[in-house]
Simulated assay, not measured.
Amino acid sequence: MPRVLSDERRDLVRTIADFCRRECGTKEQRDKLTDDGQEQHNQKLYERMAALGWLGIAVPEEYGGAGQGITDLCLFLQETSYGLAPISGFGTTVIAAAAYEKFGTEEQRRTVLEGVVNGRVEAISMSEPGAGSDVGALACRAERADGGYVINGQKTWCSNAHFADHILLIARTGQGGGKHDGLTQFMVPTGVDGLQIRGIDTMGGKDVNDLYLTDCFLPDSAVVGTPGEGWAQLMAGLNLERMILAALMLGVARRAFDDTLTYVRQREQFGRPIGSFQVLKHRIADMATELACAQLLLDDVCAAIDAEPGRVFAREASMAKLKCTELAKHITLEGMQMMGGYGYATEYGMEALLRSTVVSTVYGGTSEIQREIIGRTYGL
């Protein structure tokens, strides 16, 4: 379905697409960049994008960025995920950077935001072994000490911590009237004493980590925002996180659809292309229609957020995240089925796309949590 984009945005999309085709357009190129698919981030490629000014697309101009809104950011995310560019560090970097921009000190903002523009990676850590969807159950503690805090506890599922400069870590600094009271955000350098980062092997490769904090001292200057108000700060960033994940997965869904379409046009059985059989033709039609709907939803929510950047679009952002992640999983599964045995072969890449989408309905708030949020906005 045609999209109405300005000439400037159309040129941006075209330039990113051309870059991805040149630099990571073949499986051989991607294997070389990712250690045969085990690594999800290539720092050299990432820094080349930084040199082109793309990583700072949503960073304010005073910190060296382009100062664009979420529409332009989501265009970049879609095109790089469609192009299979191995820059997994960017998503968490943008989420963390937005928190520093809103709540950090000037020193924190300069360190992080200027780092983003120059190709540095940031991570964010909320989940713990006993606290996933229920963020209010966090148990990792930060106790007051002379001139700072001492942190003890374990965090888990922390994406990109193993190559990030800092981790935006949420810990409990006190107990209030509710379980969401007393949470504080900290800027934790990944090389600080008392922090151990240990990778978790997953079906998607080397991407997430356990964090072990043992008497990890952080000075008062490491606090991001107001102590004890970490929950409100987290809520302020949910629009962005959900839109980032929606854009990334919509790009993957588009890629899976196009790869499937190419295959069913070329693959012949019983003397004709398999896409000409009604059973596949109608599935392609349904997938194309759902993609168009998801694109319209994402574009519309982006436009609304850019028009009112201070407003929280809880319902709409959750809808976008739910729709795009569930659709990406569906299309990659359909693609694998339509490609038959070749869908399972690493040579064709559909299995890798499937592995990248399955987890998207879990991280950043599960699909069940998104449905719960949407339902609550209707007073249910």
Rank of each mutant, 00 (worst) to 15 (best):
M350R: 12
T190V: 15
A131L: 06
E368S: 14
W54D: 09
Q337I: 10
K179I: 12
A97R: 04
L250S: 04
T184P: 14
E62W: 03
V359D: 10
P219C: 03
G182H: 09
V116T: 07
G91N: 06
C158Q: 01
L380N: 02
T92P: 11
R9I: 00
A352V: 03
R22Q: 15
G65L: 04
D7R: 08
A164Q: 00
D299A: 14
H282D: 14
T366E: 15
L84M: 13
T156G: 00
T202V: 13
M336C: 10
C140P: 02
N239K: 04
L280F: 13
I57D: 04
G310T: 01
T357L: 06
A142T: 01
E47K: 15
F163A: 01
D306K: 12
P129L: 07
G65E: 00
P309I: 12
M203K: 13
Q43W: 03
T214C: 09
G225S: 09
M187S: 15
K102A: 12
L353N: 14
R120L: 01
L12C: 08
T346V: 14
E122H: 00
V208P: 07
A288G: 01
T92K: 07
I151A: 11
T71W: 00
Q196N: 08
I284G: 04
Q175C: 09
D18S: 15
E114H: 08
A246L: 02
G177S: 07
G340T: 11
Q154Y: 00
G343Q: 11
C216V: 04
G375M: 01
L45F: 09
G199L: 15
G136L: 02
R141I: 04
R283Q: 13
L327P: 06
Q29G: 07
R255M: 07
G364K: 08
A97D: 05
E351T: 13
S356C: 03
R144A: 10
E128I: 07
R48Q: 15
V279G: 10
T93F: 04
I95Y: 11
E347S: 13
A96T: 09
